[in-house]
């Protein structure tokens, strides 16, 4: 027992602080594990929908449009692609290796039929739809089974892709 008396003047208790901490073990699942395993070797693996043949990257294990598993042979993709759309972000977030303002992009990788959300390191005034970009990888010795092996994308010296070639991905 303590003899410490609370101060009467503190006023009524109006707010209760309740800490919550829950620990989980998260599974990447079959499809993402395969993709991440390939990333450890510097490879980008897409998966083809058995119904319409379109290539998903990243794949979540099923074609959301047809509700079928994507369990066929993987398709290796280039680490180059086209910016479908983008945003310039001026709010900081942990873990993003770029300074504010930075660019987030939806990239259609060459050979893929879906967009990948990622970061783009470039002059924010230069970013535009159709811009050609390539992945900037971490040094090889730092590769792990992680999407973070790609630090960000960077512009490359290739002519812009025509709007019609990527407009369905916006």
């Amino acid at each position: 027992m303590s003899d410490k008396k609370p101060e009467e003047k503190e006023g009524p208790v109006q707010v209760l602080q309740t800490p919550v901490r829950l620990e989980y073990v998260f599974s990447a699942g079959q499809s993402a594990s395969r993709l991440l395993g390939a990333m450890a070797k510097g490879k980008l693996l897409g998966q083809r929908c058995p119904v319409d043949g379109r290539v998903y990257f990243p794949s979540r294990g099923s074609c959301p449009q047809h509700g079928v598993p994507l369990d066929g042979a993987p398709v290796e993709l280039a680490d180059k692609g086209t910016v479908a759309t983008y945003s310039i972000v001026r709010i900081p977030i942990e873990k993003v290796p770029l300074e504010l303002p930075y660019v987030t992009v939806q990239v259609v990788l060459d050979g893929a039929d879906t967009v990948l959300m990622h970061l783009l390191k470039c002059d924010v005034d230069k970013v535009h739809m159709g811009m050609r970009v390539q992945a900037k990888w971490k040094p090889r010795e730092e590769w792990t089974s992680s999407v973070e092996n790609i630090l960000y994308f960077e512009p490359i010296d290739e002519p812009d892709a025509p709007y019609d070639s990527f407009k369905e991905h916006i």
Binding site: A28, G29, S31, G61, S62, G67, P69
Partner: peptide, 14 residues
């Protein structure tokens, strides 16, 4: 541990 929730669900709905 080897499947995520969607991967458990897909065969059930299929």
């Amino acid at each position: 541990l080897d499947r995520n929730e969607v991967e458990i669900l897909i065969p059930v709905i299929h």
